[in-house]
Design a protein around this nucleic acid. Structure first.
Lengths: 181, 181
DNA sequence: AAAGGACATGTACCTTGGGACATGTTAGTC
DNA sequence: GACTAACATGTCCCAAGGTACATGTCCTTT
C-alpha cells in the first residue's frame, strides 16, 4: 500500500502526471522508496477508478495529469495517522556483512571502500539538496518543509552507513572456512 | 536471491534446521532482513535439490538439519564477491515523512516521539548484543567477528533514525492543505 | 492425566516489486 | 529534412514477500 500512498501524497502537493511522479520518485526517493513507471501508471488507474484521484488535464503525447480528491485526501490522512509504521528495512549490505568472514580480506577491503564512497556520495547529494532547500530554492511551503525533513533523514542514514563501512574495514573479521563437513 | 544466500551463509557457520534458521533470522535479522518460515522451508528444499546443501541429520518431530556443500560454499562466495550490492532501502517512515505536513501537529509529535523511542530501544537491544559479543559470550571465531560487524551496523542505523526522529520533532513542518482543487 | 507451550514443517493464496519489451509523440538541432 | 533525445504510457511475466491456515510431536507443569 505504500506506493499507493506515496502517489497520493505527491499529488497532494499539486496535480501531476504519471511521468512527473515517476521522475519525483526517482529524484527524491530513488534510494528510499524506488518505484518503476509501470507500477505507477497501474496504480494511478486504480486510484482513479476508486475516486481517490481524478483527471486534472490532458496534454500532448497522451499526457494525463491527475489531481487528488477530497476522498483521496481523507484516505491519505487515515493512512498517515491511523496505521502502524512498518519498520522493516532490508539493507542487503548488512545481510552480506554477516558473511564477511567468507570473503578474501583484500576483496572485502575493496568492497568496503567502495561502499563507504557510495554512501558518502549519496550523503553529499542529499546535503546539497538540503542546502538548496534552505536557500529557499523550492519555496517555503509546508510540503517543502516536509521534504527538508525527509532529506535530513536520507543524509543521516547515508552518513551512518558510510561511517559504519569505514569502521567495518578496521574491524574486518579474520577469514574462515565454512563447516562443509 | 538474498534469502537464498542468507540461508547458505548461516549454514556455512554450521548445520541447522529450518526452524533454527527461522529463529536466527528473527533474532539477528528481524529488522534488517525479515524472513518467514514458509519461505525458508521452501528455499531449503530448492537448495537441497540443487546440491548446494545436503541433509546432515534427522531428529525428532521431523526435524531435518542441513549442511552446506562445497558447491554451496562456492556459490555463496561468488555471490559475495562477484555481484553488485543492492542499495535500495525502503524505509517506510522516511516515505511517510514526505507527507508530515498533512498530519495534525499533535498527532505528528506523538508519532515522532514513539518512533524515536522505538529506534532507541532497538539500538539498545543491539548494543547489548554487541556487549555480550565483546565479552566473548558467543566465541571468538571468524563468523562471530562478522556478526559483531553486522550488529554494529544495526546499532548505528537505529541511532541515526532515533536522532533523526528527534530532530524532525523540532523541525516539524507547518500543517497545510492539499491542492484538491 | 490433562493441558499448554515450544518444537517443527508444510500448503495455498494473494500482493508487491522488478525487468523486459513495446509504442508512439514532440521538440530541438545539425 | 533527418536524426536524436526527452516525453509519455503501457503490457506481460516472473520473482519475492507476507499472511492465513493446517498438522502433528514432544516436554514440562499442574
Amino acid at each position: 500500500m505504500s506506493l499507493r500512498y506515496g502517489l497520493l501524497g505527491l499529488l497532494a502537493e499539486g496535480p501531476a502526471s504519471g511521468y512527473d511522479l515517476a521522475r519525483r520518485f526517482q529524484e527524491v526517493l530513488g534510494q528510499i522508496w524506488p518505484a518503476q513507471h509501470p507500477k505507477i501508471y497501474a496504480e494511478l488507474r486504480r486510484l482513479a477508478d476508486e475516486g481517490l484521484i481524478e483527471v486534472e488535464s490532458e496534454g500532448p503525447r497522451r499526457r494525463t495529469a491527475y489531481r487528488i480528491t477530497g476522498e483521496g485526501t481523507a484516505d491519505l490522512r487515515r493512512w498517515l495517522t491511523g496505521t502502524e509504521v512498518d519498520h522493516t528495512m532490508r539493507i542487503q549490505l548488512l545481510l552480506r556483512s554477516l558473511f564477511f568472514w567468507l570473503m578474501p580480506p583484500q576483496e572485502l577491503a575493496r568492497q568496503l571502500e567502495r561502499e563507504a564512497e557510495y554512501f558518502q556520495r549519496m550523503a553529499q547529494l542529499y546535503r546539497d539538496y538540503a542546502a538548496r532547500k534552505d536557500r529557499g530554492e523550492f519555496g517555503t511551503g509546508p510540503s517543502t518543509q516536509s521534504m527538508r525533513v525527509t532529506v535530513e533523514g536520507a543524509v543521516r542514514l547515508n552518513e551512518a552507513l558510510a561511517g559504519w563501512a569505514e569502521w567495518a574495514a578496521e574491524h574486518a573479521p579474520e577469514p574462515g572456512e565454512p563447516r562443509t563437513k
